[in-house]
Nucleic acid binder design. Structure first.
Lengths: 253, 253
DNA sequence: TCCATTGAATGGGTGATCCATTTAATAATT
DNA sequence: AATTATTAAATGGATCACCCATTCAATGGA
């Protein structure tokens, strides 16, 4: 016989739960506004401070957006797919997952993403990818390394979107975000950069357009391997701390 | 020229960020205790209420664990891999992702997981899976359907763990959790149950043990298909609301 | 030695109060 | 009449001063 620990429910948990319940039941929908803090607190029979703790938590969870001023209030947000990135970052900071595990997962997820994108990419997705490659090429010619990096970030987002599955895309983004930080730190510190990036991208997108799964997956795999080699190149292994410590999770916009 | 919206930083955000920074830098580690609320608030130059908003958010994010009483305080947790589940649930509640996308993602992720488990499962993992199949068989014989469901949940967790990659495992769990809710709702309401489950599991684990990737993936795929058929079977499509509205995200333990 | 009591430290929670921002209504100006 | 200041109200942001319930080490009595 085993006893599970008693969980003393606290007011703010109850509140979060009720609001999430309304959400799950469809009573509350994105765009809806909750009653004003003073009002809602009274209705729930709790102090305004406690209610605010709950609202804060929901805001951090990406469920609410709080806006000041008359006509302001707590609004239900469209789901913020970037919350998963924050979870990943916290797990890494806490040492629950390792960089190795994350890199490995990224390789596998990317393989899946490429196969799905091959199968499902629409014309607009492919066009967007090609436009991205153009920008990458331009940034390369003009020596704007950091801009090119931004292009890379965007490239993977576009590729994720091309799968046509937002869950897969979300997962992909979460395993890519940290990786891009490492690349960024590397580029910013050593000025080293991937050779013939735009060219490789162009061939990859062409393979996608031909729905050539084996070619696309092979191109991506070899690219990932060369990036990995670049990252592991000499000047002092990029530290986890450097990559993580910059911008932290929070509320965007 | 474009202007990005100014983001008025609020005190609690600053606090969350500072603490996460300490975490990323390794100054704070799991098990460490933050100063008492009254003390920390004074040191940060904010009111205790605001500090509490920040601590709450970090608690909900799975970073902290708050404990009452003398010798209590805010402790840095081991990473809580279940936070990703909550994100997934919120995205679903908010309509950002659909059940269809989640199911599809699950099929693909499971395929990956099976392949990785085939490659990496250690003896202990396989033993745990076999023990789980035993329990499943027993529960089936004794007609304990809900217990058998609990076995299923555990089965997928063990399978995820067998990949040897906690990132993959976390992803797998997050796409499985909601799915299990649907199955649960189905079983609880209609009493219908998957036929020959234990037997199928037994054959699957045997394939894993033989490192027979094609056999294992095939067995899993056909099983998923039959589960899908069962879920779509008559009595009123399981509603998203029913599946989601029960227990909500929160702090465990 | 053991058990009950006590008290201090901690998080949980309240209520009153003020500030800064935002917006709409109103007044003043051109 | 149109435009521009001004004002006032509502909202979230933040502070302060309390009080309560829980926990646990220290104390003291049986």
């Amino acid at each position: 016989m085993q006893f599970r620990p008693i969980h003393t429910r606290r007011a703010f948990e109850e509140i979060c739960e009720r609001i999430r319940e309304q959400l799950a039941l469809g009573v509350l929908k994105p765009g809806d506004k909750l009653p004003a803090e003073r009002d809602l607190a009274q209705r729930l029979g709790v102090s305004r401070n406690v209610l605010r703790e709950a609202l804060r938590s929901l805001e951090m969870a990406g469920v609410l957006r709080l806006q000041k001023g008359v006509k302001g209030g707590a609004f239900i947000r469209e789901g913020d797919t970037s919350r998963m990135n924050d979870v990943m970052r916290d797990m890494l900071s806490l040492g629950t997952i390792s960089v190795r595990e994350l890199s490995e997962a990224r390789v596998h997820v990317l393989d899946l993403v490429v196969r799905l994108a091959c199968a499902n990419a629409r014309a607009v997705d492919l066009d967007a990818l090609e436009a991205n490659v153009e920008r990458t090429e331009l940034a390369t010619r003009e020596g704007r390394l950091l801009d090119r990096l931004e292009c890379s970030r965007e490239f993977y987002k576009l590729l994720a979107a091309a799968t046509g599955n937002k869950v897969i895309a979300m997962i992909m983004d979460s395993v890519t975000e940290i990786h891009m930080r490492f690349v960024y730190a590397k580029v910013a510190s050593s000025g080293v950069a991937m050779a013939r990036l735009a060219e490789k991208r162009r061939r990859f997108v062409a393979a996608l357009r031909e729905r050539n799964v084996s070619s696309a997956t092979r191109l991506m795999r070899t690219h990932l391997e060369s990036v990995q080699r670049m990252l592991e190149q000499d000047p002092g292994a990029m530290s986890l701390q450097v990559a993580l410590a910059e911008v932290q999770p929070g509320i965007r916009r």
